[in-house]
Design a protein around this nucleic acid. Structure first.
Lengths: 149, 149
DNA sequence: AAGATATATTTGTAATAACAACTAGAGTAT
DNA sequence: ATACTCTAGTTGTTATTACAAATATATCTT
């Protein structure tokens, strides 16, 4: 559905206003879609994302700063986000030996297990993306990169 | 900057994962950019958006439901959002005569004034979009429409 | 008209986000 | 060593978001 119909706005001042609205709207739409899917696993998009960052690094440990710099929404509070995951026993945290300002964080076996469960259902989730060809997906990615400068 | 570098992730499982991450990331990035700009006017993106919806309709009144259906982030709470704007005297609200379940909402002269001030600075704000050609903007919009189905 | 159902909005709440202030440890210069 | 500055992370506070439940009015059915 065209963005004009989606938000019931007849027209935009120009294509730039339209693309702005469309990026904002689609981002919000996709985040909702994600959250809906992840609700079964009691995770938010941001929490899931942090778990994936940690898995990508596993079995290496990683510090909070590093997590923050890789997060999709950098405004969320990485420290408390890790807290939540720790409470669910999906990650572990310990002060770094060499530099006691830092904390080492790593994913637990349970965390990996949860991610695997999610992976198993990923095909269903990804279905919507097959509305796009691979080439179209590349095009969006490329142009969004360009927009961010 | 490429999304891979932006979030420091070497690779994605496929182009679909990449486009998902990119849409989420860019949406969040753009929302932050917007909020930063609007901070001078003590408005959030959602509040600004509601004001614009009301201006589009002005001097007609509009009901809450209608606002909600046009919002970019439909999960925000339209009722309390209008509250905030009313406290700032940017909008007015009154129970609808014909159907007392509904409320009529409309933008005040002060609200219009604030929007005009923002308009005056819009050129600065829109600068980033000129990284894209008109054609590229149309392409993004079209493909995002397609993604949402 | 009474009761059931649908619609529009508000309110309660718990979780999360935004932002600033604070704490603690490391590095650096004198 | 002392003072200064920088870095990493935590904590406090307020606003916003997400979701469900409650309220109030309108509409439909019999």
């Amino acid at each position: 559905m065209k963005i004009e119909e989606e938000i019931n706005q007849k027209q935009f001042r120009d294509v730039y206003e339209k693309v702005m609205v469309n990026v904002l709207f689609t981002g919000s739409w996709l985040q909702n879609y994600n959250n809906q899917f992840l609700k079964d696993y009691d995770l938010t998009v941001q929490q899931y994302n942090v778990l994936r960052i940690l898995r990508g690094q596993s079995p290496e440990k990683i510090m909070l700063n590093e997590i923050q710099s890789r997060m999709l929404d950098r405004m969320s509070n990485a420290s408390r986000l890790v807290d939540k995951l720790k409470n669910k026993q999906l990650v572990e945290r310990k002060a770094c030996k060499h530099d006691r300002r830092k904390v080492d964080i790593w994913i637990t076996p349970l965390g990996l297990e949860v991610l695997e469960k999610i992976d198993a259902k990923m095909a269903d989730f990804y279905e919507i993306f097959y509305r796009l060809t691979e080439e179209e997906s590349e095009t969006i990615s490329h142009l969004l990169d360009k927009l961010r400068g």
